[in-house]
Simulated scan of single mutants.
Amino acid sequence: MSGTSWSYALVTPDALVTQALSHLLAAFRTSGLDPVAAALIRLDAETMLRLYEIPPRGRPARLPPHRAFQLWYDLGPACLTILRYDGADACAAMGRLKGATDPALARPGSIRYAGENILMNLVHCPDDEPSAVAELHQLVGPRHAEALIRQATLSDDRVRLLTVDTIEASVPLFGGPHALSLPLAVNRLRLRVVQHLAITGIAVQDLLPLLAKARLALLEERDELIAIQTAPARTAAARARNRRTQALLRDAVRIARAPAAENAVNRLSDVLMGSSGQWGPVLEAIRAADVYLSDTESAVLEQSHYI
């Protein structure tokens, strides 16, 4: 489409922990940067250090040590957001919005003005489109990166609905009355499977309508579970819904020909229903499906095997 460009914003773990994601998505839109796809990913120190190896404008010439990066990514997930811009230079527009690397030097109104320090400054973005392509390949691997770039150049509103419009419902909980709820943890992980398939399986015929049905079922379940006060009643309600939800997810992963995702959704169903044998295969299945799992969620799911 003539006159448009794209970039990405990596909303960093500090922004997820401080519940700033909604504010940042709104800030992108206000600045004309349209979020068209989003995914929760795990950062690692080695990858982030590679992104900062060549210090372009605005970045410190001397980086903090490896341990500082490790502490940063261990806080939680990052939200990788693909942005389309009605103009020639989305990367420049995002650069103006993010502000200086050091929050002490960022202008009021910029995103990083509210940051904590030069690492925990809420968002990272590339300096230009070639950097965006190279960095996405480092962050999520070639297949996932190319699927995201396809969304950047030819967006699909169905993918936006399944990812951007659902991302906050899938974010791990860092506190509150439902942070340790097993059925709600399974619900969030299933939503992440839906989001991953929506991006990587965009070209698969008939997949997105199935994912849309699964998304709706999961959001309806989420609303019901949040309204229930006791853990046994939440578990009973989730189990009552499981057959329909699992059927939708199983159809989706089979159409997508995604055996790793199929194994993950089957394992999650077993955990919810109390029929999972050992924790190790469940953990391996979630990791193989490339779905983010927080430390708290991992503990909740693993504990269910012992109690």
Rank of each mutant, 00 (worst) to 15 (best):
I199Q: 10
P177Q: 08
L191G: 06
T166P: 00
V193L: 09
L184R: 08
R188F: 08
A185D: 15
P177A: 04
S155E: 10
V194H: 09
A169D: 12
A169V: 00
T200D: 15
Q195H: 03
H178C: 10
I167Q: 01
S181L: 04
S170V: 04
F174G: 12
G176Y: 06
P172W: 06
L197K: 07
F174Q: 09
N187C: 14
H196Q: 10
V164P: 06
V194D: 12
L154S: 14
L173C: 05
D157M: 12
L189V: 07
V193R: 05
I199K: 05
R192T: 00
N187D: 12
L191R: 14
P183A: 11
H196K: 12
L162S: 00
G176H: 05
L180Y: 12
L173R: 13
S181W: 01
V193I: 15
F174N: 12
G176L: 02
P172I: 02
D165F: 04
V164I: 07
L182P: 07
R188W: 02
V193F: 01
T200P: 13
L173N: 10
V164S: 02
F174E: 11
P172M: 01
P183I: 14
L173P: 03
P172D: 08
A169Q: 05
S155P: 15
L191E: 02
S155F: 10
R190K: 11
A185L: 08
V193D: 06
T200K: 09
D157E: 15
F174K: 05
L180C: 06
L184V: 07
L189H: 07
D165A: 13
V194A: 09
R192K: 06
H178Q: 11
S170H: 07
N187W: 04
G176M: 03
A179I: 00
H178T: 07
L162T: 01
R190L: 14
I167A: 03
E168K: 10
D165Q: 14
A169H: 09
H178M: 08
L154H: 15
L162V: 01
T163Q: 00
F174M: 08
I199M: 09
G176A: 05
R160F: 03
R160N: 03
T163P: 00
S155Y: 06
N187F: 09
P183T: 13
D157V: 09
L154I: 06
Q195Y: 00
L189I: 05
R160D: 02
V193G: 02
A169W: 00
S181M: 03
A185T: 15
Q195R: 01
L191S: 02
G175T: 14
L184P: 04
S181I: 10
H196N: 12
L162M: 00
D157H: 15
L189C: 12
L191C: 07
V164F: 02
T200L: 12
L197C: 11
A179F: 04
V193Q: 01
I199D: 06
A169F: 03
Q195D: 08
P172F: 07
L180E: 15
P172E: 03
A169L: 02
I167G: 00
G175V: 09
I199Y: 03
V164W: 10
H178D: 15
L197V: 09
